[in-house]
Amino acid sequence: MNERGLLLSSHSPAMAREEVLEELWTAEETGMTLSLSTLTRTIHAGPSDGWGGVTQELIERGWVTLDGEQLRLSEDGQREAREVVRRHRLAEVLFNQVLELPMETTEAEACRLEHELSPQVTQAVCSFLGHPPVCPHGRPIPPGACCALLSRRVPSLICRLTDLKPGERGRVVLMAPRHRDRLDQLADLGVTPGAVLTLRQRKPSLVVEVDRTLLALEDEIADGIYLRPLVEW
């Protein structure tokens, strides 16, 4: 991953701290701990001895503790790291699964955005994506406050057509089918941003109602249709 050239020198102090926190979170997630020397050699932002100074600073702030040779996140450190990781992985979902950018671009852009997104924007992105539980690599996305609301059965802002249950309705906000010609065809049938779709059934084939027309769709097509669910109270 060194070739991405994200060298320590190009990082602001805050960014550099976040990189280390992220690295430690990722390691702890898989049940590992890192020593300072391992960290400086393997950090995904690009190995450099300079990470030693950054880590030292984190220890002084009380975000990282030393357990013998091994670095550990403190409670405060965990709170910070969790937010960085959350931003990174949400960005990955957005770029890779919604915008369908290649993984390489996704990675690079997510690494930049993780330092940039404000809490407000992060929450909006998370809601837009329907509070996804995992990133494209399959690693868990730490839930934010907005996701906790979800667990209290507040519907997500955006979901895919395939996420609806039969009988539920949603307004189309975004269409990202795999083949572009599908887009024109769906538009001709009235499936276009702004249209209200009602899912009639999932099996044996997905059937939706748009206006007063029934359409049978392949799941692959339905996967590319993003809706804002309409809830009737």
Binding site: L186, L189, L214, L215, A216, L217, E218, E220
Partner: peptide, 9 residues
């Protein structure tokens, strides 16, 4: 091709 078919009443 993907399945996409209008179902008349």
């Amino acid at each position: 091709s993907d399945f996409l078919l209008e179902v008349p009443p």
